[in-house]
Design a protein around this nucleic acid. Structure first.
Length: 483
DNA sequence: TGAAATGTTGGGGCG
DNA sequence: ACGCCCCAACATTTC
C-alpha cells in the first residue's frame, strides 16, 4: 500500500517554473495529484470569456504535455472547486492540498475550502505565486490601504525583494488511476464558427511561449519603451499580459529578467523602470480588487453609480463592438480586439473613454465586452483599467477628462499606419484626414474610394456634443455639485 | 496617461 | 512716430 499523496491545485498559475506551491508540493516527496478545476458553478467564479476559454484550452494542453514529459499527469475536473477538491481528497486520501493564493472574489471559495479541509484533518498550504507584493502586506504609514498609484509604487519598490525562483521540478510522480476529464470535452475551443484563427496567428499560449515573449521583448523592443509604448503604430509593448493573466510566467520572473537586462547594460534603465511601473499597475489593480471585490461591477467611487448612464441603442453598442463607430482610431482598436484578442493599451483608453463618456453607457458593459474578447481579460486589470478611464476608480483620470479620438489619433498614430492596418477601407485616405474622414473634401474622399455612410460609417455621435452631454451627466452625479 | 475655453502677449499691418 | 487692431502663439483656467 503506497503512502498518501498530496494534491497540487493549478489555478491562475499555469507554469512549472517559479511556482511556489508546486515546488512545495514536489518537495514534500509524496506522490502528486495535479489538478486543474474548471469552475463554472461557484457563485464567486466569473464565467470566462470566449477569448479566455480559447487561451485556457491551449495553455492547459501545453501544460499537460510538459507535465507528462516529466513523468506526471494533469488531472482535469469540472465543477464547483469546493466539490472537486473534496472529491479528490476523498478518492485519493490526500493528506495536504497546495495552491497559490487568489485575491478577487474567488478567495472566498478558497477560504471555504481551507476551512473544510482543516476541519477534516487535511492540510491546506497556500503560497504567493501571483504578485510581487500581496495586498495584505501593503499598508500606508498610517495603516490604511493605498488609493494612489505613485505612493503605492514607491512603497512597492522599497519593499521589493526578488526571491530565488521556486525550483522547477525535474520530474513529477503522479498517483495513478485518478480519473480525468478529456480537455476536448470541455469545448473551450470555439466551433460554429471557429473565430480563433486570428488569435492563433498572434499568440503562443503556454509557459514556453511566455518566456520567449519576455526574452524577445527585453532583447528587441524595450529600448525606447518609455515613449514608444504609447504608439499603437509601433509594436513596442511586451504583450506579456495574457501570459501573466494565466500565470504562465510570474511577475518575479519578469522582474528578475528585466533587472538583469538593465544591469547587464542590455536595456536602458529608464525604459526598464517604466516597464516595471506598468507591471506595478497590475499589482495596484490587485491591491484595489482585494479591498473591493465588487470592483468589476460597481464604481470604486460609489457616487458614480448615480450617473444617469444611458442604456445605449443596440446599433450604437454594436457599432462600438465591431469597430464601426466612424472614428477610425476606435474602429481600428475594436477590430484588432475582435480579430486578435488584444488591443494596444493606448487605444484601449481611447475606446473605453468613447464608451463611457461619448456613448455614456455604464463602463461595466464595456468591461464585459473586453472580458469576453480579450485574451488577457483579468478581473483586476480589466476593471481597474475601465474605472481609470471612466473616471470612477481609485487614482483615476478626472471625470472631466474626455479623450478626443481625432486628436488622440493624430498624436499617437501620426502617419495613420495603425488605422490603415485595421481599417483597410480608409487605406487610400491621405494622412491629413485619416483620423477624421468626415472632414475630408468630397474630391479627396472620392479619390480614396471612400463613401461615408456606405464604405465607412458616419460618426455614430458627434464628439463635441457627446462630450458636453457626458460632462453634464457626470457633474450632476457628484454629491457636492447639487449644493 | 486631456481638451476646450478663456486670457495674455507681442509682432506686424495700417491709418 | 504713434496708436489701434488683428491674430497667432502661448499661458491659464475650466470642465
Amino acid at each position: 500500500m503506497s503512502e498518501r499523496p498530496v494534491i497540487f491545485w493549478f489555478r491562475d498559475d499555469l507554469r512549472l517554473a517559479d511556482n511556489p506551491a508546486l515546488a512545495a508540493a514536489h518537495a514534500s516527496g509524496k506522490q502528486l495529484v495535479i489538478v486543474y478545476a474548471l469552475d463554472e458553478q461557484s457563485k464567486e467564479a466569473r464565467a470566462l470569456g470566449g477569448a479566455s476559454r480559447w487561451w485556457l484550452d491551449k495553455s492547459l494542453r501545453d501544460l499537460s504535455e510538459r507535465i507528462a514529459a516529466k513523468g506526471g499527469r494533469l488531472t482535469l475536473r469540472r465543477g464547483a472547486a469546493e466539490a472537486v477538491v473534496a472529491a479528490l481528497v476523498s478518492e485519493t486520501s490526500a493528506i495536504t492540498v497546495y495552491w497559490n493564493r487568489r485575491y478577487g472574489a474567488a478567495r472566498k471559495i478558497d477560504e471555504r475550502i481551507e476551512k473544510s479541509l482543516k476541519a477534516a484533518g487535511v492540510g491546506a498550504e497556500s503560497f504567493n505565486g501571483l504578485l510581487l507584493a500581496e495586498p495584505f502586506n501593503m499598508k500606508t504609514a498610517s495603516g490604511g490601504d493605498y488609493k494612489v498609484f505613485t505612493p503605492f509604487w514607491k512603497a512597492l519598490q522599497a519593499s521589493l525583494v526578488a526571491p530565488e525562483a521556486a525550483p522547477e521540478p525535474r520530474s513529477l510522480k503522479s498517483l495513478g488511476n485518478v480519473r480525468s476529464d478529456e480537455i476536448a470535452d470541455w469545448r473551450l475551443h470555439p466551433t460554429k464558427p471557429d473565430w480563433s484563427t486570428g488569435l492563433a496567428d498572434e499568440w503562443t499560449p503556454g509557459e514556453l511561449g511566455a518566456r520567449k515573449r519576455l526574452r524577445s521583448f527585453l532583447k528587441d523592443r524595450i529600448d525606447g519603451y518609455a515613449n514608444g509604448r504609447d504608439r499603437p503604430d509601433h509594436d513596442q509593448t511586451s504583450r506579456l499580459s495574457p501570459h501573466l493573466r494565466f500565470g504562465e510566467i510570474s511577475p518575479h520572473q519578469v522582474l528578475r529578467a528585466a533587472i538583469h537586462a538593465q544591469e547587464a547594460g542590455e536595456a536602458p534603465a529608464r525604459d526598464v523602470q517604466k516597464f516595471l511601473s506598468e507591471v506595478a499597475w497590475r499589482e495596484f489593480s490587485y491591491h484595489l480588487l482585494y479591498h473591493d471585490p465588487e470592483m468589476a461591477r460597481l464604481s470604486w467611487r460609489r457616487e458614480f453609480e448615480e450617473v444617469d448612464w444611458r442604456t445605449g441603442s443596440k446599433s450604437e453598442l454594436r457599432a462600438w463592438q465591431r469597430g464601426r463607430t466612424g472614428y477610425p482610431i476606435i474602429d481600428a482598436g475594436m477590430r484588432q480586439l475582435w480579430r486578435t484578442g488584444f488591443m494596444h493599451n493606448r487605444v484601449r483608453m481611447i475606446a473605453a473613454s468613447f464608451f463611457a463618456k461619448d456613448l455614456l453607457v455604464h463602463w461595466r458593459q464595456g468591461e464585459q465586452w473586453f472580458w469576453d474578447t480579450l485574451v488577457d481579460a483579468d478581473e483586476a486589470n480589466n476593471a481597474n483599467g475601465w474605472q481609470w478611464t471612466a473616471g470612477t476608480g481609485a487614482d483615476a483620470a478626472p471625470y472631466f477628462r474626455v479623450f478626443n479620438p481625432v486628436l488622440q489619433g493624430k498624436k499617437f498614430d501620426p502617419e495613420g499606419d495603425y488605422v490603415r492596418a485595421w481599417v483597410p477601407e480608409l487605406g487610400k485616405l491621405p494622412n491629413a484626414w485619416i483620423h477624421a474622414p468626415w472632414s475630408a473634401p468630397a474630391p479627396v474622399l472620392a479619390q480614396a474610394g471612400v463613401t461615408l455612410g456606405d464604405t465607412y460609417p458616419e460618426p455614430v455621435v458627434d464628439h463635441g456634443a457627446a462630450r458636453k452631454r457626458a460632462l453634464a451627466a457626470y457633474k450632476s452625479s457628484r454629491p457636492t455639485a447639487s449644493a
